[in-house]
Structures are given as C-alpha cells and as structure tokens.
Nucleic acid binder design. Structure first.
Lengths: 237, 237
DNA sequence: CGGACCATTGATAATTGTCAAAATTCGTGG
DNA sequence: CCACGAATTTTGACAATTATCAATGGTCCG
C-alpha cells in the first residue's frame, strides 16, 4: 500500500487537485502545500465573506456552491458570480485592495479550503509558474465578466433569460437527461439579471406555455426546445 | 548634458513611464525594454483591434483614447471600457485565450506603444515583480468591471446616468472649473449603459431642465448641482 | 402537519423603446 | 473666417415592456 499518504492527501485535501492554479506542480511540491491549508464548513445561508471585510486568505470551494454579490444603492442584491466546486475567490484582493469588494453566501452546505495570504504570497515567489496560472485565470474571469456585462446590456429581457438558461444548461447539466439544475432561486436569477422576481416568474411561465421548457421543481427545469432558446437568446426585438 | 539618452528615452517612449506595470524597474532595466517597443498612430475611427482577431502584442496608450466594445446579438455595440493615456490592453489575451474578446476603436487621434507577446513573456520571466504588478492590475480591473456590472443591474436609469456622470467628473475633470469632458458621444454613453440614445438624450435634457447640469457642447457638460447627482445615483425608485 | 419561505398571477402605473421628423453641432474646404 | 453638408442630437407621439402593489397558491423541511 505505497499509496497510503496519497489517500490521506486525496481524502482531506481534494481542493488542491481541483484548482487550476496548482496544476503542473509536481507531487512533492503539492505535499508541501497540503499542511498550509485550513478547512471550514458552512451551512446554507451562512456568510463566508462580507463586502468591506479585510481578507486574509484565498478560499477554494471543495464542495457546494456560493453566490457572490454586492448591494445596490437601493439595498437590492446584485449577484456577480455563482461559484461551485473547484472555483476559488479572494485572490484578487490579496494583491490589490485589501478589503472584499463583494459578499459571499452559501447556497447549500459548503466545504472550503483556505490558504492564508502570507502562505499564498510565499507560494507565488517559490513557484513562479503559479503566477502565470493566476494571470491566466484572472484573464479568463475578466472575459467571463465582460460577457456577463454585455448580456446585461441586451435590452431584450427574454434574450437575457434564454442566455442564462443556456449557460446553466452547460454548466449544471444533469448526467443523462436534459434537466438543468438551477443554482439560484427565481429571485436569485432575477437579482443576477437585474429584473424583478415577478418578471422572472412571468417569463418562465411564458416559456413553459410556449412548450420551450418544463418546470420540474423550484430548482430544476427541463429544456424541451433548445433550438428555440438559442433563437431567443439572439433575438433583436 | 549627461541626460542625452534620457531625453530621447522620454520623448519617444513615454509610454514606459506611464504604465504601472513598469514602475519599480530601475533605469537600466527600463533602457533594456525601450528597444523592444514598436509605435503606431491611428486616426479617429480607426480600428486597433477586432473581436476574434489573433493577438500578438500588448498595446499601451501613449496619447488619445479608445473604446473597447462587443457586438450584442442584435448588432448593437456594447461598450465595455474607455481606455485613455497610460491604460493598456491585450495582456489578458496573451496568457489565456488567443483571440481578442472585444474590438477597440480610436475615439480621437491615438498613439500607441506595443510590446510583442514573445518579448512580454520574456519580461515576465526576467522580472518576476512585473507578474505581481500585473496580477494587481488585473485584480483592479476585475473590481472595476464588477462595479460596472453592478451599476448595470440598477433598474433605475436616472441613477445609472447620474453615476456615469459622476464617474466621468472624477476621471475627466477639467483643470480649473467643474466642466466635464465626456469621452463618449450620447450614443456611446447609451451603448455603455444599455439604453437607447433617445433615452440618454431625454434624460440629459431633463437634468438640464432641473438645473443640475448645463450642456456646453456635445462633449462637455458642467455640473451645477453635484449633490443632486449624488442623490440621484443612490436613488431607489 | 404546520409554518415559513418561495413562487405565481392579476391589475395598474410608470418607464423606456420605436419610428419619424426637426434642430443642432461639427468638420472641412473654399 | 464663413458656409455647407454630413453626422449627431433632440423632440414628439405612440406602443411595448417592465415595475409595483396586492393577493393567492405552492413547496420544502422540520
């Protein structure tokens, strides 16, 4: 059983295997990082981070999903991201501003791995290739944000909703069927798209009436006419 | 006149002094970078980059300003950024995706400095501190994008417009007075906020009727009641 | 089973988009 | 420096869409 230490490694520190920034480090180096990592559990609704808080570590999601959001001037939540297993956040704050620019809340039970700011910085200097990975990751995140920003600029709400459903269908696909797990509630999706929950509800009902989707339960829908959604997403008026 | 080479340096390669990522490099190292830089001029309306194009260099703005935008499914421009003197773009593409995720067009006569992808990568390996600077810069850009995204989610258009004017008033302030130089046309601002140019026009007229701003010309306005704008920007309904 | 939370639906008001026309501004060439 | 034409902006009337307010219905979980 020469894989003994490997199994401990795998069972307790999965996160290190799930995060692109650590890909490419060899096994020995990974083992050096393992002891630096702290773990934490959260229940649904728990706050992992609050806008304005000082930040002292990078957080890697090992299980579950979270929403990252800011409050608009009128007190509504504007959701920026939904992070799930393997995603991480906090790295932007370590090197630029010191305080969190958004709040993070668990959408379901969540397990995290955390790497302190000091250790993280040491890593950057010890393994220059990690810096390059991070630059790439940040570049990707910027691109995704830019896409989201563009979608927000689409004046046609039906197109925005169709686009969101298609995005979820790619990212949260159920294994066999064309069922989609929605990471957010109706209100959550509305808060992501910048519309009211009533409008969201109405639009989904309409899609169901048109036979394009079927609502299975509050967090699951089925796409019946993917092509129609794609058409809607590119609709001009 | 021992400053001879320094002056050549300063006159022809100002860009290197304007970009945060090169701050902190000593004079000798800066001199090594200078010969790697290529220059280019553009007239108003020229394309510097088109979405989907392969990218082979980082572009630093030495003079003038540009808009970066994507086309929405219906063919409208969604403006993502206005870059001006000292800003740079293209660095995200070098390390992640290979093609441009947005187009860039000159808003006025523009002078650029360009650093090839190969040279840029060499720099990253030779001067690790540049990587750290870039991570910080990207972190800042993400934060700005997140703010913009949040603003877009504000359902009240008056608040979005007030916020935009306040932002411009900080970034494009005229030296003495409280005149603001608008980097974008009415249509451009509308395309940034995701509204029609007619709505933009109407809203600005209304602000002028209310005595909050005065329109000096198409690219200049004067803020008469800054406090009123701040109030509007935080308005809930 | 009960209660809290979430989602849906209806009626109405407010806002913004659309289309069309007129007015203004801007840059260029004489 | 002025005039002219092109481009941009403004305004109006109307249609379409979405927010708001209020009430009802449904779902999830202990």
């Amino acid at each position: 059983m020469q894989s003994g230490h490997d199994c401990i490694h795998c069972n307790n520190n999965l996160c290190i295997h799930k995060v692109p920034i650590f890909f490419g480090l060899d096994h020995d180096n990974l083992l050096k990082i393992v002891p630096l990592i702290k773990h934490e559990n959260y229940a649904k609704g728990d706050r992992l981070l609050t806008e304005g808080d000082p930040i002292d570590s990078v957080v890697i999601l090992n299980q579950g999903s979270v929403k990252a959001f800011k409050y608009t001037p009128d007190g509504r939540e504007q959701i920026l991201y939904v992070f799930s297993e393997g995603d991480f956040f906090g790295e932007q704050f370590l090197l630029s501003s010191q305080t969190a620019t958004y709040s993070v809340e668990a959408l379901e039970p969540v397990k995290t791995c955390m790497l302190s700011k000091a250790d993280f910085n040491k890593l950057l200097y010890s393994y220059p290739e990690i810096s390059v990975k991070i630059i790439a990751e940040l570049g990707g995140r910027i691109a995704r944000m830019e896409n989201a920003f563009q979608s927000m600029g689409i004046r046609n709400v039906d197109a925005r909703i169709a686009g969101l459903l298609l995005e979820y269908s790619e990212r949260h696909k159920h294994p066999d069927s064309d069922l989609i797990h929605l990471p957010l509630s109706r209100e959550g999706m509305a808060n992501y798209l910048g519309i009211t929950r009533e409008t969201m509800s109405r639009k989904l009902s309409q899609l169901e009436n048109d036979g394009i989707i079927v609502s299975v339960n509050n967090k699951t829908i089925k796409i019946k006419e993917r092509q129609a959604l794609i058409l809607l997403a590119g609709k001009t008026e």
